[in-house]
């Protein structure tokens, strides 16, 4: 019988690093994208500078923008009401321009009875307009496949325990709506001002896989 170290008597790092997901497929899509983009530029439908500008715009949004909106909702009940019933107008009050072709944004309020968690099982639909580009784990086939089947186990892996008396509501953004979670204000943070509150809110809280940590 061979010992556990038989194949590891050399001293270099022999771990299989986690492969980048769908690498081969991604390369094919990248080639396809480049070919189509070059053709469209050649035909004068848009310029290379247009492409750069759109990419730049996407990168200027970050979870700090979402956190600002959530912190305002925690501090201002009337704003929260407007956010929950017509998020676009409410968010524009904070100076964001949502006039573009972005899909509709829906804010889901967590309560003592309901905890929301967002996924796109079909691809990677995400509230980019307030969070920027999604993290790799959100796009991974593992998260997308598992969070709808065993949400509590997945949340546990994020360090999040939701009591059995709370409904976990997984929301799969399969079409024209994008979902952002409004977490509950953590106990002990009631007296913080809006800027301090915004500091408690992370990207993952707004996807619903973690909870804001109490101060």
């Amino acid at each position: 019988m061979s010992g556990p170290h038989d194949h590891h008597d050399h001293d270099h790092d022999h771990d299989d690093h986690a492969p980048i997901e769908q690498d081969a497929e991604a390369k094919e899509f990248a080639l396809l994208e480049r070919a189509i983009r070059e053709l469209l530029i050649e035909k004068g439908l848009f310029t290379a500078d247009d492409v750069r500008r759109v990419i730049d715009q996407g990168a200027t949004v970050s979870p700090a923008d979402g956190a600002r909106v959530i912190a305002r909702a925690w501090r201002d009940p009337a704003f929260k009401q407007r956010l929950l019933t017509g998020s676009k107008k409410a968010i524009e009050e904070l100076g964001y321009d949502l006039g573009g072709p972005e899909p509709n944004l829906i804010v889901l309020e967590n309560t003592p009875q309901v905890h929301h968690v967002v996924v796109c099982t079909l691809c990677s639909c995400y509230p980019r307009v307030l969070l920027g580009p999604p993290p790799d784990w959100y796009k991974s086939t593992e998260y997308r496949a598992r969070v709808v089947v065993e949400p509590r186990a997945v949340l546990q892996e994020f360090g999040t325990t939701i009591g059995d008396d709370v409904e976990i509501r997984v929301v799969d953004s399969t079409a024209d709506m994008r979902y952002l979670v409004l977490p509950m204000l953590p106990k002990g943070s009631e007296k913080l001002d809006e800027a301090a509150l915004a500091g408690l809110i992370t990207r993952d809280c707004m996807v619903g896989v973690t909870l804001p940590r109490p101060v």
Binding site: R169, V171, D172, T174, A175
Partner: peptide, 28 residues
């Protein structure tokens, strides 16, 4: 377009979590 909510136990017959857990999706 509608948001449709399903009981997890209806979607996954072997679902292990509480009966109140749900999953919703946007369906035309």
């Amino acid at each position: 377009l509608y948001l449709i909510r399903f009981k997890q136990a209806e979607v996954w017959p072997g679902y292990k979590g509480p009966a109140a857990d749900t999953v919703s999706a946007d369906i035309y």
